[in-house]
Amino acid sequence: MSDFFWKIWSVLVFARQFGSFGRRTWIRKPLMIHDPKHISIGFGCFIRDGARLEVVSRKGLAPGKIEIGNNVTMEQGIHIVACTSVVIEDEACFAPRCTIVDTTHPIGVPEQGNRARQVSNEPSFVHIGKRVFLGANVVVLTNVRIGENSVIGANSVVTRDIPANSIAVGSPARVIKTIR
């Protein structure tokens, strides 16, 4: 379907389903959007084909939330999971196939059932600052802050905080340069 169709669909359908949905924002061919009333998207955002935006509800706990700022661009195949909180500030940009998760699956004993259907009950978060760029296939794991103006290289796995104005690469991602 054409881009025009998805722009109209975003205005007429998505804008009514989400917690908030900014003007001039559109999502092209989403794969899955779970619990959109707990997802807020600012104005001027563009989310490409195959997006998975998932807010997970855990028994006895408040549902998670995803907050996406203004003028954020997410290329195809983005996958965001929030059990507690994923915040993405203004003008962040994600290359294809990035994954951002604020939870883990418990280790437990095998007799407790399928681990893929279980998530941790511990409070957690991911916070991505303004103008952060994530290269292709970046994975951002739980309890991580990426400071503003930072760049995360392709195929990196972010397991700990990255300071503002940094370039980080690798698995686990390590700062290799400070941007002035």
Rank of each mutant, 00 (worst) to 15 (best):
P63N: 15
P96T: 02
R174W: 07
K130A: 13
V13R: 12
A173T: 06
G135K: 06
R48N: 15
I176S: 01
E91H: 14
A82S: 12
F4H: 08
C45H: 05
G147M: 08
T99R: 08
N70K: 14
D90V: 09
F125A: 05
A168D: 03
N121S: 15
N70S: 14
T178M: 15
N70D: 15
P163T: 04
C83A: 15
S85R: 12
G147P: 04
A62E: 15
V119P: 01
I47A: 00
V86Q: 02
N149W: 07
F46C: 11
K65W: 04
A51G: 00
D49R: 12
A136T: 05
V101F: 03
G60V: 12
R16G: 15
T159D: 09
G42H: 08
T99W: 03
I107M: 12
P30L: 07
V119E: 05
S10K: 01
D49P: 00
V87S: 07
D35C: 13
S2A: 03
I176N: 01
V158G: 03
A51I: 00
Q76T: 05
V158P: 01
R131E: 09
F5Q: 06
V11C: 03
I100N: 01
S10R: 02
I27T: 02
I41H: 10
E122W: 05
G44N: 08
T99P: 02
K130T: 09
V175A: 07
D49T: 08
A116S: 12
F133T: 10
G44P: 04
R131V: 01
T142K: 15
I39Y: 08
V11L: 04
E67M: 11
V87N: 10
T84K: 10
H105C: 06
A62F: 09
R117E: 15
F94S: 04
G44D: 05
H34A: 13
G153K: 05
R58I: 14
G147Y: 09
V11I: 10
I162V: 14
G153T: 07
R160P: 00
M32Y: 02
G50Q: 02
K29V: 00
S57D: 13
I88S: 08
H38I: 04
N114T: 04
A168H: 03
A154V: 04
P123S: 08
R16N: 15
V56A: 09
F18K: 03
V72K: 01
V81K: 02
P36G: 10
S150L: 07
M1W: 01
S120F: 04
F18L: 09
I41N: 08
T178G: 06
G19F: 03
S150V: 02
I162G: 09
I80L: 04
S156N: 06
